[in-house]
Write a protein that binds this DNA or RNA. Structure first.
Lengths: 194, 194
DNA sequence: CTTGCAAGTCTACACTCGTATACTTATATC
DNA sequence: GATATAAGTATACGAGTGTAGACTTGCAAG
């Protein structure tokens, strides 16, 4: 057989994903402007220049990070669309009690971290529109689906922001079960499955 | 009479508030890191050094801007506490159909703009806790008031973020009356006045 | 073993940031 | 009108940023 890539010389693929993971963490923690390429590279075990080699620019790196977190636009399985059960599952996912859609929740952290940077905001905007479209088509039913999907995303973004970034005690330290119980009827109203 | 301050020499007070207003706009637009002292000063008609003279440092300037937007922690008048009417007024205020609490809504824009900056995040955190406390005490009734107040603030922050910063079309371009109509029952559930 | 080429590093450049010091200008009082 | 003083400006510095080009090193094939 040809065996074109037997062991990976100095591990190009692995380095690339290491940079991506490091960047994701750095952007979520320090924001687009706050995270430096030198720090991202160092955490990945390489030099800052490798970032430029692999991703072209900081802007493109951020775009790839955001796209990576949003890779799975389906927040919930489509098993129980339109049922009250959906609101419960959504609420539990939002407070971290279930795993599906965690990548998307991470994505909101990254996007919030975009701060006011022009390029970061543009990238975040495009990704959010994609997610919004998927949500409006796949999750929300009835009248004003786009608007209700947008309200749902706003709630998700706001809760993530307050929990993860601000660390508002009433949300960050609260019992997830209690939070899920409080969020469920709210989400049900938004989804129109109350 | 003494007439201690007849016409104000070169208008110290006015310059100070001009810088404050300019900073508020710049922070909301470009974020804490993105907004530069030179740009803020230029928009206020002075040099960058005046900012240092009047506020000491960029960090202190930001703190004062945030405190300024949060000066009025009462989002709504306490006239109809606990009535379903309250949810309606709150919803209309949130989409800009009524004026009360607009400063606080601006505040969430400024705070989102804090991005991942350490100092900005800390300042935003403190202010949000103050508002949260006021909300939990004055607006929300019943069980789990702190948690429900936090969910309400999350919704406010998320909607502001999506409308003003991201510019999600479904929210930014939608008819405010429609949006208010959709938000009203959601807020009613959060407030427990449904 | 030699050689080609990708993987990775070093050094440096142009730029912007926040801030400090020294200077200039306008205003109000004597 | 002279003068003290606050308001405002000019210049510059050191640090940190993203990025570019030349260099070095390791791996795999001839």
């Amino acid at each position: 057989m040809a065996d074109e890539k037997p062991t990976r010389r100095r591990n190009a693929e692995e380095t690339r994903s290491a940079i991506l993971a490091s960047a994701r963490r750095a952007f979520a923690e320090s924001g687009y402007d706050g995270a430096g390429l030198r720090g991202i590279a160092e955490a990945a075990g390489v030099t800052a220049m490798m970032v430029g080699r692999y991703f072209g620019s900081k802007e493109q790196l951020f775009a790839e990070v955001v796209a990576d977190t949003m890779r799975d636009p389906v927040i919930l399985s489509a098993d129980n669309l339109g049922s009250p059960q959906m609101a419960r599952e959504f609420a539990r996912a939002l407070v971290g009690l279930s795993t599906p859609g965690q990548a998307v929740l991470d994505g909101f952290r990254v996007m919030w971290a975009s701060g006011g940077s022009e390029v970061a905001a543009r990238i975040a905007r495009e990704q959010i529109r994609t997610v919004h479209h998927a949500t409006a088509e796949g999750l929300v039913r009835g009248d004003h689906a786009p608007e209700r999907a947008a309200i749902l995303l706003s709630l998700v973004a706001g809760v993530q922001l307050m929990r993860q970034q601000i660390g508002l005690p009433a949300l960050a330290d609260a019992d997830p079960e209690v939070l899920a119980g409080l969020l469920e009827p709210v989400i049900a109203v938004v989804l129109g499955v109350a």
